[in-house]
Design a protein around this nucleic acid. Structure first.
Length: 273
DNA sequence: ACGGATGTTCGCGC
DNA sequence: CGCGCGAACATCCG
């Protein structure tokens, strides 16, 4: 489930369920999410501590715990944060379950086990290479155009690839990059440094709109691609369907090893020769 | 039954 | 060093 809007939704879920609560017990199974850390050690880093705050950096959730402790979560391709009311059972694929002192539980689920669960002192969490090298977060930016000007400078790599490079921009993934580029009318393969101020203005607006729309959808009813709901996106997953703007059939192609979707007529800005 | 999936990382080759 | 490509990870869904 994880790109910036889903991770932000997960962060808010975690905050709503656990902030101010104490972790009475923690069920930690041995899974790939721990990357070799001992489950008992992870549990020991959590049990008894009060949850002070939940922060987000790109696709990482950083939980501040009492005593300068921390819990880092990356949801990978299939992770979720699920609140469980008092007396409820664990959701499918629960890998970490926190029992809170008000009777509620908070579960971290993962089907494909591509994510990460790290318990460590908070300052050590933030200093890990995966976090230290993260670029600026587009949801937090007060100057998204400036952020893009810096992120897109100095490389002829495809703009979509650069948008998904977490060291340049933190949090955008395959869906949000494709959606933002469609909104901006920019070709996914456009060389990043070849885009001009007007392209960047449109791209900043496209990113903001796509993030806000997806986040609003999630906060309203939690729907997501894999949960039976209809596809909420404009072009992602819509190969062959008509472009919402001009009606031309959306094309699917592979760019940088990832499926991408674009309108063959609307997205001409910066198109490579 | 087979192909594909919202992410990250590593190795290889140019 | 920049960059593309493929594979790996683990598992399920349409």
């Amino acid at each position: 489930m994880p790109e910036l809007p889903e991770v932000e939704h997960a962060r808010r879920t975690l905050a709503r369920w656990a902030e101010g609560r104490r972790i009475a017990e923690a069920e930690v199974g041995a899974s790939r999410l721990l990357r070799g850390a001992a489950p008992a050690a992870v549990r020991a880093g959590l049990v008894g501590r009060r949850v002070e705050a939940a922060e987000r950096r790109g696709k990482w959730i950083l939980v501040r715990l009492e005593g300068d402790a921390g819990l880092g979560l990356h949801l990978g391709m299939s992770g979720k944060v699920v609140g469980v009311p008092t007396g409820g059972g664990p959701p499918p694929y629960a890998r970490l379950v926190l029992h809170l002192d008000d009777g509620g539980q908070l579960a971290v689920t993962s089907r494909r086990l591509f994510g990460r669960v790290v318990a460590a002192p908070f300052v050590e969490l933030a200093a890990r290479p995966e976090l230290r090298t993260l670029g600026p977060d587009p949801l937090e930016a007060d100057d998204l155009e400036g952020l893009l000007a810096r992120a897109l400078a100095g490389t002829r790599r495809p703009v979509k690839t650069v948008l998904m490079d977490q060291t340049r921009v933190a949090g955008l993934g395959n869906i949000q990059a494709a959606e933002a580029l469609w909104r901006a009318g920019i070709h996914p393969a456009a060389p990043a440094s070849g885009l001009g101020p007007e392209d960047r203005r449109r791209l900043a607006a496209g990113i903001a709109e796509s993030l806000a729309r997806t986040l609003a959808d999630l906060e309203r009813d939690g729907t997501y691609l894999s949960e039976g709901g209809s596809n909420p996106f404009r072009v992602y997953g819509r190969a062959g369907e008509g472009c919402p703007r001009c009606g031309a059939p959306i094309v699917r192609e592979v760019l940088g090893g990832r499926a991408t979707f674009r309108c063959p007529t609307c997205q001409d800005r910066g198109a490579p020769a």
